[in-house]
Amino acid sequence: MSITAILINAFALVCLIYGFYRDRDKAVKSLKKAAKSLFGILPTILIIIIIIGLMLGFVPPAEISRFVGEQSGILGVLLVGAVGAVLHIPALIAFPLAASMLESGATVMAVAAFITTLTMIGIVTLPMEIKILGKKFALLRNGLSFIIAIIIAILIGVIL
């Protein structure tokens, strides 16, 4: 187990102990919720893991990096950003998927764009957002989110 994984587990454990100390019933309720969502998300995670395995096993890194690697430049970043905006998958799964993209030759820039648009922009949920928060707000938020996602991605590419 990596240090990161140990830290994450330690943090969760501390929070859980504090939760029990504050209110036993609430902590038990939290654990039940945790178990429920764990089993809820498990099939999706397994599907993504199989996809990652197949992708890294079959698609040559050169193919992937042609679209999202060094030579694709800013166009590749825009492309991945657009894919992220349209896809509707849980954010938790975005990270292993992003890691597999990196492993197969995608740039840090493209990966950052993917994560940011995937989480912040929801084309699928846009009608709902418009209904609840108004057309103008929803369109502004999604549109500007795409722009800042690209800026953040470029800056991450420069820093890292």
């Binding site: 990161t4 994984a5 994450i8 587990n9 943090f11 969760a12 454990l13 929070c15 859980l16 939760g19 609430k26 902590a27 309720k29 939290s30 654990l31 039940k32 919720k33 945790a34 178990a35 969502s37 764990l38 998300i41 995670i45 938790l92």
Partner: peptide, 14 residues
Amino acid sequence: ILPAVMVLMGLFSV
């Protein structure tokens, strides 16, 4: 990490 992440999410939501 998944069980730990889920425990945190459960705690936060409650």
